[in-house]
Design a binder for these strands. Structure first.
Length: 711
DNA sequence: GCGGGTACTTAGAAACCGCGCT
DNA sequence: AGCGCGGTTTCTAAGTACCCGC
């Protein structure tokens, strides 16, 4: 990997799917600089693969480099929460309110809604002309003002109030069931059987999943069959008694043919579908919240189907029933145009609660939990919250040393409860574990977080591979993703763990005197707004910032710098254990890339040969023309070298990424202002780091962060 | 403290789509 | 023009957190 100066070796063993990477030496000379090998395995489903990373940059987050003393407020934007004095422009909703009062009735308001939906410019003329002072108007760009609304420059609502006006069109329901054509047969025990519409619908859910591993799982089949039978007529129920005798293959083939046909559709037909979707989005995909048109994240109601829990879920295969208008609670302003239920139906309830952000809710039948329709991440209401999250994490930065000292003290406490709390917090901080709420047994897959760790999830090694006091973690976390890690800990922690495990069974709680509520209460005392998850945000963001500092080589070209960025991002993903199944086409795409590289290498060799002969030629002829030839050949070689390097960088990046998902941390844990500042500092176009959606979500950060931003 | 309920964030997989290649 | 690939978008499950009444 010449050129990048970062990468020392890479090897791929396709046999056992193990990658060993020697990452650049990012070690910190601090607590964990001796840390061991970090490895994990992914065992969701029956996939098993493992990834090893050595040496230990993953642990480095615990020791942020001493950043020169922070200008206490300089560079800090007023946090959305603590900031009480109005920063910039006042909210505009009074503008709207006035308009609204002038019209004085509901129709006026929904007129406005329609106007906004149809034409934001027209709306502009109507509402703004009356109130907005000249100066203000000139300041704003004339077009697409609605999209470029800088909510982050406006005053925020007092705590608790989420909006003052909300109008929307309600949800889009799943399309009704279309019975199968007569010629598509279902067989039971080898014989054709015509199913009732209800039973048939549920059967199609199963048929559509026939190729999926789910349908081979005992629990899935059992749950499905039980719920399916509930939908059958009594005759069907008495005939169909054994799922193994059911033959869905014809149905399955039919659906495959259907989706094939869909792919083969003509351009016009595809265009028509596209337009229909756009129409739906236009009509139902937006709402008006406080004077602004905002995108809704999920305006379509989840269609019925079979529940696909992750990991070993006891409810997999159960029937997710169809949601009807009668299940739906609508939330909107009293004075808005209330969305009408579909003809012949009623809403369950219409309420006007501006202390919450959701527009629509219903109760789902598998777990009995509530589902919501809410706004897009680009909306003010989500963006403000996101911004606030990072501000809380930055406040933690200021007191994290103190908190760390505190919990280290607490390891010695004479109170068991305090010791457990302190050790758990140490894990949350050092390993970025999740809090670990209790879960109802038998209702969900058996997964744990920090506070819910059980004795069986850790092993203590007084000595392992030449290191002292090693704790071996092995448990399933969120989404049944395996967390596997061997971590050297301080002696005191180790001794405490031994104590916590004394006289316990493997299935007993490790921290029997602790839960997330106790932990969070304690954290609240240490810093306002502090909860367990803030540590994840803080450690992720500080790691990114630090890794970017370490890895970015000023002399690198743009692709190499982006590789560095991705590596910094990767360090965070590893810290947070964000794994993915290796893409199905991984090996193949890697081979393709390799052959491209080989081709490029040959091309380079050719170009070099040509250059050489051109040089020789020039030496003999000593004329202008041959000199020029040499120059152009030189250029060609350089160009090809650059292309080759780009490809090699790409290969490296992809390979290092095989089992690591960068998206989650990028979207949820990394203060976007760090990335924006990095881009500005090194002249990297922001588009190289964030795609369109991400830029929309992080518009606030892109607008406000300068090159010198410090998390 | 604790059990139930609610609101909201975080998560990986699957579906989709557009673009470059043949 | 059809095809495959990779990035993007959609989907919805699975977490965290906190409230309330006892």
């Amino acid at each position: 990997m010449k050129g990048t100066g970062l990468f020392t070796s890479r090897s791929l063993d396709s046999e056992n799917r193990l990658i060993s990477l020697t990452l650049p030496n990012l070690c910190f000379l601090f607590w964990f600089s001796h840390a061991s090998i970090f490895s994990w395995q992914k065992i969701q489903g029956n996939k098993t693969s493992s990834l090893k990373l050595e040496p230990p940059f993953f642990a480095s987050f615990c020791s942020p480099p001493r950043i020169k003393d922070e200008p206490d407020d300089d560079g800090f934007y007023a946090s959305p929460k603590e900031d009480s004095k109005p920063l910039k422009r006042p909210r505009e909703d009074d503008d709207f309110k006035t308009f609204f009062e002038e019209k004085g009735n509901i129709v006026a308001c929904s007129d406005r809604f329609l106007l906004i939906l149809q034409d934001s410019k027209a709306k502009k003329a109507k509402s703004k002309d009356k109130k907005v002072p000249e100066a203000d108007k000139r300041k704003k760009p004339k077009k697409e003002e609605e999209q470029k609304w800088k909510w982050w420059e406006e005053e925020r609502y007092p705590e608790g109030i989420k909006w003052k006006f909300l109008e929307h069109k309600g949800p889009v329901f799943a399309p009704p069931y279309e019975p199968l054509p007569e010629n598509v047969k279902f067989y039971y025990d080898g014989k054709v059987m015509k199913l009732s519409t209800k039973a048939e619908e549920v059967a199609t859910f199963f048929a559509k999943m026939l190729d999926h591993e789910y349908t081979t799982k005992e629990i899935f089949r059992k749950n499905f069959f039980k719920d399916w039978r509930k939908e059958m007529t009594s005759e069907e129920k008495s005939t169909i008694t054994n799922l193994s005798k059911c033959d869905f293959t014809h149905m399955s083939q039919y659906f495959k043919a259907q989706s094939e046909a869909r792919k083969q559709m003509s351009k016009e037909e595809k265009q028509k579908i596209k337009e229909e979707n756009e129409r739906l989005l236009k009509e139902y995909g937006y709402c008006v919240m406080d004077n602004h048109k905002e995108r809704i994240a999920n305006f379509k109601i989840e269609p019925p189907g079979l529940f696909r829990g992750r990991g070993n879920h006891p409810k997999m295969g159960m029937l997710k029933r169809r949601i009807m208008p009668e299940d739906i609670i609508i939330n909107c302003s009293k004075d808005s145009k209330i969305p009408p239920p579909p003809p012949g139906h009623k809403w369950k309830e219409v309420r006007h609660d501006n202390k919450v952000t959701w527009l629509v809710s219903w109760t789902e039948n598998i777990q009995g939990s509530i589902k919501y329709i809410m706004l897009n991440p680009s909306s003010r209401i989500k963006g403000e919250k996101d911004w606030q999250k990072y501000e809380t994490a930055r406040r933690l930065k200021k007191c994290v040393d103190k908190i760390r000292n505190q919990y280290r003290e607490d390891w010695k406490s004479k109170e068991m409860k305090v010791r457990q709390r302190a050790v758990a917090l140490y894990f949350i901080d050092k390993l970025a574990l999740r809090a670990g709420n209790e879960k109802e047994e038998g209702e969900t897959a058996d997964t744990v977080g920090c506070c819910s760790l059980r004795v069986e999830h850790i092993k203590l090694h007084p000595e392992l591979d030449g290191q002292e006091y090693v704790v071996e973690f092995d448990f399933l976390g969120k989404d049944s993703i395996r967390y596997y890690n061997k971590v050297p800990v301080e002696k005191r922690v180790f001794k405490n763990l031994q104590l916590f495990m004394e006289n316990k069974q493997p299935e007993d709680d490790l921290f029997d005197r602790l839960n997330t509520s106790i932990l969070n209460k304690h954290l609240q005392d240490l810093m306002e707004g502090l909860t367990a998850k803030v540590f994840r945000t803080y450690n992720a963001s500080i790691t990114l910032q630090q890794q970017l500092k370490e890895l970015t080589n000023p002399d690198d070209n743009i692709p190499a710098k982006i590789l560095s960025y991705n590596r910094a991002n990767r360090a965070v993903a590893i810290l947070c254990n964000h794994q993915r199944a290796p893409p199905k086409t991984f090996e193949k795409s890697m081979m393709n890339l390799q052959s491209k590289i080989d081709a490029k290498k040959e091309q380079l060799a050719d170009a070099r040969r040509e250059l050489k002969s051109a040089k020789a030629d020039a030496k003999v002829r000593r004329d202008e023309k041959s000199k020029k030839t040499v120059e152009s050949k030189k250029k060609a070689v350089q160009r090809i070298e650059e292309q080759l390097m780009k490809l090699e960088v790409q290969a490296t990046d992809r390979e290092e990424n095989k089992q690591i998902a960068l998206g989650t941390s990028k979207l949820n844990y990394l203060d976007p202002r760090i990335s924006v500042a990095w881009c500005k500092k090194w002249g990297i176009p922001i588009e190289k780091i964030y795609n369109k959606t991400q830029r929309e979500k992080f518009a606030w950060a892109i607008d406000m962060a300068e090159e010198d931003y410090e998390f």
